[in-house]
Protein backbone atom coordinates (compact mmCIF):
# COMPACT_ATOMS: atom_id res chain seq x y z
CA UNK A 1 0.00 0.00 0.00
CA UNK A 2 1.21 3.49 -0.80
CA UNK A 3 2.45 6.24 1.49
CA UNK A 4 -0.84 8.00 1.00
CA UNK A 5 -4.07 6.17 1.82
CA UNK A 6 -7.25 7.43 0.19
CA UNK A 7 -10.43 6.40 1.97
CA UNK A 8 -14.01 7.05 0.92
CA UNK A 9 -16.86 6.39 3.34
CA UNK A 10 -20.39 6.61 1.96
CA UNK A 11 -23.80 6.33 3.53
CA UNK A 12 -26.98 8.19 4.44
CA UNK A 13 -27.02 11.41 6.40
CA UNK A 14 -27.50 10.49 10.06
CA UNK A 15 -25.58 7.21 9.83
CA UNK A 16 -22.44 8.73 11.31
CA UNK A 17 -20.29 8.62 8.19
CA UNK A 18 -18.58 11.89 9.10
CA UNK A 19 -18.16 10.79 12.72
CA UNK A 20 -15.97 7.81 11.86
CA UNK A 21 -14.07 9.86 9.28
CA UNK A 22 -13.33 12.44 11.99
CA UNK A 23 -12.16 9.72 14.38
CA UNK A 24 -9.71 8.35 11.80
CA UNK A 25 -8.51 11.82 10.80
CA UNK A 26 -7.99 12.83 14.42
CA UNK A 27 -6.14 9.60 15.27
CA UNK A 28 -3.86 10.17 12.29
CA UNK A 29 -3.26 13.79 13.29
CA UNK A 30 -2.43 12.84 16.87
CA UNK A 31 -0.15 10.12 15.49
CA UNK A 32 1.82 12.83 13.62
CA UNK A 33 0.58 11.74 10.21
CA UNK A 34 -0.78 14.10 7.61
CA UNK A 35 -4.55 13.83 7.48
CA UNK A 36 -7.31 15.45 5.50
CA UNK A 37 -11.06 14.96 5.80
CA UNK A 38 -13.53 16.53 3.37
CA UNK A 39 -17.20 15.97 4.18
CA UNK A 40 -19.62 16.06 1.28
CA UNK A 41 -23.39 16.08 1.77
CA UNK A 42 -26.45 17.90 0.52
CA UNK A 43 -28.81 20.27 2.27
CA UNK A 44 -30.67 17.43 3.95
CA UNK A 45 -29.96 16.86 7.65
CA UNK A 46 -31.03 13.28 7.25
CA UNK A 47 -31.80 10.96 4.37
CA UNK A 48 -29.44 12.48 1.79
CA UNK A 49 -26.26 10.78 0.68
CA UNK A 50 -23.31 11.63 2.89
CA UNK A 51 -19.74 11.09 1.69
CA UNK A 52 -16.47 11.47 3.59
CA UNK A 53 -13.29 11.86 1.53
CA UNK A 54 -10.38 11.05 3.75
CA UNK A 55 -6.65 10.90 3.18
CA UNK A 56 -3.97 9.90 5.66
CA UNK A 57 -0.37 10.00 4.67
CA UNK A 58 3.22 9.75 5.82
CA UNK A 59 4.18 12.60 3.49
CA UNK A 60 2.42 15.87 2.64
CA UNK A 61 -0.88 15.41 0.81
CA UNK A 62 -0.55 17.17 -2.55
CA UNK A 63 -4.20 17.53 -3.49
CA UNK A 64 -7.48 17.24 -1.59
CA UNK A 65 -9.40 15.43 -4.32
CA UNK A 66 -8.76 11.92 -5.55
CA UNK A 67 -10.00 9.91 -8.53
CA UNK A 68 -9.84 6.41 -7.08
CA UNK A 69 -10.11 5.28 -3.49
CA UNK A 70 -7.77 2.75 -1.91
CA UNK A 71 -10.54 1.80 0.50
CA UNK A 72 -14.26 2.33 -0.01
CA UNK A 73 -16.76 1.64 2.77
CA UNK A 74 -20.44 1.78 1.80
CA UNK A 75 -23.12 1.88 4.51
CA UNK A 76 -26.28 2.45 2.47
CA UNK A 77 -27.44 1.23 -0.93
CA UNK A 78 -28.55 4.73 -1.94
CA UNK A 79 -24.92 5.87 -1.82
CA UNK A 80 -23.67 3.23 -4.28
CA UNK A 81 -24.46 5.21 -7.42
CA UNK A 82 -22.50 8.19 -6.10
CA UNK A 83 -19.29 6.30 -5.35
CA UNK A 84 -18.95 3.69 -8.07
CA UNK A 85 -16.73 5.98 -10.09
CA UNK A 86 -14.16 6.03 -7.30
CA UNK A 87 -13.70 2.27 -7.55
CA UNK A 88 -10.46 1.37 -9.27
CA UNK A 89 -8.42 -1.75 -9.77
CA UNK A 90 -6.78 -1.44 -6.36
CA UNK A 91 -9.85 -0.38 -4.39
CA UNK A 92 -10.62 -2.52 -1.36
CA UNK A 93 -14.38 -2.45 -0.87
CA UNK A 94 -16.19 -2.88 2.43
CA UNK A 95 -19.86 -3.34 1.62
CA UNK A 96 -21.67 -2.88 4.94
CA UNK A 97 -25.12 -2.31 3.47
CA UNK A 98 -26.61 -5.44 4.99
CA UNK A 99 -24.66 -5.39 8.21
CA UNK A 100 -27.65 -4.20 10.27
CA UNK A 101 -29.14 -7.71 10.54
CA UNK A 102 -25.88 -9.10 11.89
CA UNK A 103 -25.71 -6.30 14.47
CA UNK A 104 -29.29 -6.90 15.61
CA UNK A 105 -28.50 -10.63 16.01
CA UNK A 106 -25.71 -9.59 18.39
CA UNK A 107 -28.13 -7.26 20.22
CA UNK A 108 -26.37 -4.16 18.96
CA UNK A 109 -28.55 -1.32 17.72
CA UNK A 110 -28.09 -0.34 14.08
CA UNK A 111 -27.13 3.16 15.22
CA UNK A 112 -23.69 1.61 15.87
CA UNK A 113 -23.31 0.37 12.30
CA UNK A 114 -20.82 3.12 11.53
CA UNK A 115 -18.64 2.06 14.45
CA UNK A 116 -18.66 -1.55 13.26
CA UNK A 117 -17.42 -0.22 9.91
CA UNK A 118 -14.73 1.75 11.76
CA UNK A 119 -13.65 -1.50 13.44
CA UNK A 120 -13.46 -3.21 10.06
CA UNK A 121 -11.59 -0.28 8.51
CA UNK A 122 -9.04 -0.51 11.34
CA UNK A 123 -7.73 -3.75 9.84
CA UNK A 124 -6.74 -1.93 6.66
CA UNK A 125 -5.20 1.05 8.44
CA UNK A 126 -2.72 -1.00 10.47
CA UNK A 127 0.28 0.34 8.53
CA UNK A 128 -0.69 3.83 9.66
CA UNK A 129 -2.72 3.52 12.85
CA UNK A 130 -2.98 1.05 15.70
CA UNK A 131 -6.29 -0.26 17.01
CA UNK A 132 -5.48 1.47 20.30
CA UNK A 133 -5.02 4.86 18.63
CA UNK A 134 -8.44 4.56 17.02
CA UNK A 135 -10.06 3.33 20.21
CA UNK A 136 -8.58 6.29 22.05
CA UNK A 137 -10.22 8.74 19.64
CA UNK A 138 -13.44 6.74 19.76
CA UNK A 139 -13.36 7.34 23.49
CA UNK A 140 -12.66 11.08 23.11
CA UNK A 141 -15.50 11.45 20.65
CA UNK A 142 -18.21 9.20 22.08
CA UNK A 143 -17.47 8.26 25.72
CA UNK A 144 -20.14 10.62 27.04
CA UNK A 145 -22.85 9.11 24.85
CA UNK A 146 -25.30 6.70 26.55
CA UNK A 147 -24.64 3.89 24.03
CA UNK A 148 -20.83 3.99 24.35
CA UNK A 149 -20.53 0.36 25.46
CA UNK A 150 -22.67 -0.75 22.57
CA UNK A 151 -20.39 1.24 20.26
CA UNK A 152 -17.34 -0.46 21.77
CA UNK A 153 -18.94 -3.85 21.11
CA UNK A 154 -19.65 -2.79 17.53
CA UNK A 155 -16.01 -1.64 17.16
CA UNK A 156 -14.73 -5.05 18.28
CA UNK A 157 -17.29 -6.90 16.17
CA UNK A 158 -16.20 -4.87 13.15
CA UNK A 159 -12.65 -6.18 13.50
CA UNK A 160 -13.94 -9.74 13.22
CA UNK A 161 -16.09 -9.23 10.13
CA UNK A 162 -15.38 -11.49 7.18
CA UNK A 163 -15.89 -11.23 3.44
CA UNK A 164 -19.29 -12.86 3.93
CA UNK A 165 -20.48 -10.12 6.31
CA UNK A 166 -19.08 -7.21 4.31
CA UNK A 167 -18.44 -8.34 0.74
CA UNK A 168 -15.62 -6.80 -1.27
CA UNK A 169 -17.92 -5.89 -4.17
CA UNK A 170 -20.96 -3.71 -4.58
CA UNK A 171 -23.05 -6.27 -6.38
CA UNK A 172 -23.35 -4.24 -9.55
CA UNK A 173 -21.92 -7.03 -11.63
CA UNK A 174 -25.16 -8.80 -11.05
CA UNK A 175 -26.83 -7.36 -14.10
CA UNK A 176 -24.15 -9.03 -16.23
CA UNK A 177 -24.56 -12.21 -14.31
CA UNK A 178 -27.62 -13.20 -16.24
CA UNK A 179 -26.25 -14.31 -19.58
CA UNK A 180 -28.40 -16.32 -21.94
CA UNK A 181 -26.52 -19.58 -22.25
CA UNK A 182 -26.75 -22.23 -24.96
CA UNK A 183 -24.48 -25.26 -24.95
CA UNK A 184 -23.89 -28.71 -26.31
CA UNK A 185 -21.07 -31.18 -25.77
CA UNK A 186 -18.55 -29.08 -27.64
CA UNK A 187 -19.48 -25.45 -27.22
CA UNK A 188 -20.53 -23.12 -24.45
CA UNK A 189 -22.14 -19.99 -25.91
CA UNK A 190 -23.14 -17.08 -23.64
CA UNK A 191 -24.87 -13.85 -24.72
CA UNK A 192 -25.17 -10.78 -22.51
CA UNK A 193 -28.34 -8.86 -23.41
CA UNK A 194 -27.18 -5.92 -21.30
CA UNK A 195 -24.26 -5.35 -23.67
CA UNK A 196 -25.73 -6.15 -27.10
CA UNK A 197 -26.66 -3.21 -29.30
CA UNK A 198 -28.04 -5.35 -32.12
CA UNK A 199 -25.52 -4.15 -34.72
CA UNK A 200 -25.44 -7.50 -36.52
CA UNK A 201 -21.66 -7.50 -37.09
CA UNK A 202 -21.34 -10.92 -35.42
CA UNK A 203 -23.97 -12.36 -37.76
CA UNK A 204 -22.17 -11.00 -40.82
CA UNK A 205 -18.73 -12.18 -39.70
CA UNK A 206 -19.68 -15.73 -38.69
CA UNK A 207 -18.04 -18.04 -41.25
CA UNK A 208 -20.61 -20.80 -40.70
CA UNK A 209 -23.84 -18.79 -40.85
CA UNK A 210 -24.55 -20.02 -37.35
CA UNK A 211 -25.99 -16.73 -36.09
CA UNK A 212 -29.31 -15.04 -36.81
CA UNK A 213 -31.48 -12.45 -35.07
CA UNK A 214 -33.69 -13.96 -32.41
CA UNK A 215 -37.41 -13.31 -32.47
CA UNK A 216 -37.60 -13.14 -28.67
CA UNK A 217 -34.32 -12.02 -27.07
CA UNK A 218 -33.69 -8.29 -26.93
CA UNK A 219 -30.51 -6.31 -26.31
CA UNK A 220 -29.88 -3.16 -24.28
CA UNK A 221 -31.64 -0.84 -26.76
CA UNK A 222 -34.57 -3.19 -27.31
CA UNK A 223 -33.19 -4.42 -30.63
CA UNK A 224 -33.22 -8.12 -31.50
CA UNK A 225 -30.21 -10.10 -30.25
CA UNK A 226 -28.42 -12.70 -32.29
CA UNK A 227 -28.91 -16.35 -31.39
CA UNK A 228 -26.71 -19.32 -32.25
CA UNK A 229 -27.44 -22.56 -34.04
CA UNK A 230 -25.11 -24.85 -32.14
CA UNK A 231 -25.25 -27.52 -34.84
CA UNK A 232 -23.55 -25.11 -37.22
CA UNK A 233 -21.21 -23.36 -34.75
CA UNK A 234 -17.57 -24.49 -34.76
CA UNK A 235 -16.50 -22.39 -31.78
CA UNK A 236 -14.09 -20.23 -33.80
CA UNK A 237 -14.82 -17.17 -31.59
CA UNK A 238 -14.90 -14.75 -34.54
CA UNK A 239 -18.23 -13.40 -33.26
CA UNK A 240 -16.76 -12.85 -29.78
CA UNK A 241 -13.68 -11.10 -31.19
CA UNK A 242 -15.80 -8.93 -33.49
CA UNK A 243 -18.44 -7.83 -31.00
CA UNK A 244 -17.60 -4.21 -30.10
CA UNK A 245 -19.20 -4.40 -26.65
CA UNK A 246 -18.21 -7.91 -25.51
CA UNK A 247 -21.79 -9.23 -25.60
CA UNK A 248 -20.75 -12.75 -26.70
CA UNK A 249 -18.56 -15.31 -25.02
CA UNK A 250 -17.73 -18.62 -26.66
CA UNK A 251 -15.84 -21.41 -24.93
CA UNK A 252 -14.82 -24.55 -26.75
CA UNK A 253 -15.16 -27.43 -24.38
CA UNK A 254 -12.18 -29.73 -23.92
CA UNK A 255 -12.36 -32.68 -26.27
CA UNK A 256 -12.41 -35.94 -24.36
CA UNK A 257 -9.77 -38.13 -25.99
CA UNK A 258 -10.74 -41.71 -26.56
CA UNK A 259 -7.65 -43.82 -27.28
Amino acid sequence: MSENLKILIAGEGGQGVQTIAEIIAKAAFVGKLESLHIPNFGVEQRGGVSLAFLQISKSPIPYPKFLKADILAVLASRAVGRVEKYVGRQTKIINAIHLDTLLLERKIQTTSLNIAVLGNLAKFLSQFLSIEALEEQLHVKLADKPNYNENLNAFHLGQLLTEKDAPSHLGYYKRYLKPLVSQNNHIFFARFPYLCKGCGLCIERCPKNALSFSKVDLGVYGTPMPQVDLDKCIGCKICQITCPDCAIKVVKKQKIKKN
Binding site: P179, Y194, L195, C199, P244, C246, A247
Partner: peptide, 25 residues
Protein backbone atom coordinates in the same frame (compact mmCIF):
# COMPACT_ATOMS: atom_id res chain seq x y z
CA UNK B 1 -20.25 -16.36 -16.37
CA UNK B 2 -18.87 -12.89 -16.95
CA UNK B 3 -18.30 -11.03 -20.22
CA UNK B 4 -14.82 -11.43 -21.71
CA UNK B 5 -13.80 -7.85 -20.94
CA UNK B 6 -10.11 -6.98 -20.86
CA UNK B 7 -9.00 -6.74 -17.22
CA UNK B 8 -8.19 -3.05 -17.59
CA UNK B 9 -11.78 -2.26 -18.59
CA UNK B 10 -14.01 -0.50 -16.12
CA UNK B 11 -16.92 -2.95 -16.32
CA UNK B 12 -19.34 -0.45 -14.84
CA UNK B 13 -18.97 1.84 -17.87
CA UNK B 14 -20.09 -0.76 -20.41
CA UNK B 15 -21.97 -0.88 -22.72
CA UNK B 16 -20.11 2.06 -24.23
CA UNK B 17 -21.66 5.21 -25.67
CA UNK B 18 -20.46 4.39 -29.20
CA UNK B 19 -23.16 3.77 -31.81
CA UNK B 20 -24.18 0.16 -32.54
CA UNK B 21 -21.64 -1.35 -34.92
CA UNK B 22 -19.01 1.36 -34.39
CA UNK B 23 -15.40 0.28 -34.94
CA UNK B 24 -13.91 2.37 -32.11
CA UNK B 25 -14.77 -0.16 -29.36
Amino acid sequence: VLPSFPKCYKEKSWPSLFCPGCGHP
